[in-house]
Deep mutational scan, measured.
Amino acid sequence: DMPHRFKVHNYMSPTFCDHCGSLLWGLVKQGLKCEDCGMNVHHKCREKVANLCGI
């Protein structure tokens, strides 16, 4: 059981939050991507995600 390793990410195409399902808005640093499993989340959704990475 490992925690997610979220890192700020710049998305080049429209991407949706894997937690709430809404679009990650903006041009740069729109959200966070787990370096291990690739989960994408809003900055505000980070604390709502279970801290178990499903690598």
Rank of each mutant, 00 (worst) to 15 (best):
D1L: 02
D1A: 11
D1S: 05
M2E: 01
M2Y: 12
M2R: 04
M2I: 15
P3I: 15
P3T: 15
H4E: 04
H4F: 02
H4I: 02
R5E: 04
F6G: 02
F6A: 04
K7G: 06
K7N: 04
K7L: 10
K7E: 06
K7Y: 07
K7T: 13
K7W: 06
V8K: 05
H9N: 12
H9M: 14
H9S: 15
N10S: 07
N10F: 05
N10P: 03
N10K: 02
N10E: 02
N10T: 10
N10Q: 09
Y11H: 04
Y11D: 01
Y11S: 09
M12C: 08
M12E: 04
M12I: 13
M12D: 04
M12Q: 05
M12K: 06
M12R: 10
S13C: 10
S13Q: 04
S13L: 08
P14L: 08
P14V: 08
P14Y: 05
P14M: 06
P14D: 03
P14C: 06
T15L: 04
F16Y: 12
F16H: 15
C17R: 00
C17I: 00
C17F: 00
C17T: 00
C17V: 01
C17N: 00
D18C: 13
D18F: 07
D18A: 09
D18M: 05
D18V: 07
H19R: 11
H19V: 13
H19Y: 09
C20H: 00
C20R: 01
C20G: 04
C20W: 00
C20V: 00
G21F: 12
G21D: 15
G21H: 14
G21S: 14
S22M: 10
S22G: 11
S22W: 15
S22T: 12
L23M: 10
L23V: 06
L23S: 03
L23N: 03
L23F: 14
L23Y: 06
L23D: 03
L24M: 13
L24V: 08
L24Y: 02
L24F: 06
L24A: 07
W25C: 02
W25N: 03
W25D: 10
W25P: 04
W25I: 07
G26R: 01
G26D: 03
G26T: 02
L27Q: 03
L27M: 08
L27P: 02
V28H: 08
V28G: 06
V28T: 09
K29H: 12
K29S: 11
K29Q: 10
K29W: 08
K29D: 06
Q30E: 02
Q30I: 02
Q30F: 02
Q30D: 03
Q30N: 02
Q30S: 01
Q30V: 02
Q30W: 03
Q30L: 01
G31N: 02
G31T: 01
G31I: 01
L32W: 11
L32K: 09
L32R: 13
L32Y: 13
K33M: 13
K33G: 13
K33S: 14
K33Y: 14
K33T: 15
K33N: 14
K33W: 12
K33H: 13
K33R: 14
K33P: 00
K33Q: 13
C34F: 00
C34R: 01
C34K: 01
C34W: 00
C34A: 00
E35R: 09
E35M: 14
E35T: 14
E35Q: 13
E35F: 11
E35D: 12
E35L: 12
E35H: 13
D36K: 07
D36T: 06
D36V: 05
D36W: 05
D36M: 06
D36R: 06
C37T: 04
C37Q: 00
C37Y: 00
C37I: 00
C37K: 01
C37W: 00
G38L: 08
G38V: 11
G38K: 13
G38W: 14
G38T: 10
M39R: 07
M39I: 12
M39G: 12
M39T: 13
N40G: 09
N40H: 09
V41D: 00
V41G: 04
V41Y: 07
V41R: 05
H42V: 01
H42Q: 06
H42G: 06
H42S: 07
H43Q: 13
H43D: 09
H43R: 09
K44M: 05
K44E: 06
K44I: 06
K44C: 09
K44A: 11
C45F: 01
C45A: 01
C45L: 00
C45G: 02
C45E: 04
C45N: 00
C45M: 00
C45Q: 00
C45P: 00
R46F: 10
R46V: 12
R46H: 10
R46Q: 14
R46W: 09
R46G: 08
R46D: 13
E47V: 12
E47C: 13
E47F: 07
E47W: 15
E47L: 09
E47R: 09
E47P: 13
K48S: 10
K48Y: 11
K48H: 11
K48E: 10
V49P: 09
V49N: 12
V49S: 15
V49L: 11
V49G: 14
V49T: 07
V49K: 08
V49I: 11
A50R: 10
A50P: 07
A50Q: 08
A50W: 10
A50V: 10
A50D: 13
A50N: 09
N51K: 08
L52N: 11
L52W: 15
L52P: 11
C53Q: 12
C53R: 14
C53V: 09
C53M: 09
C53L: 13
C53G: 15
C53A: 13
C53E: 13
G54V: 10
G54P: 14
G54Y: 09
G54R: 11
G54C: 15
G54W: 06
I55L: 06
I55K: 14
I55A: 10
I55W: 07
I55G: 11
I55R: 11
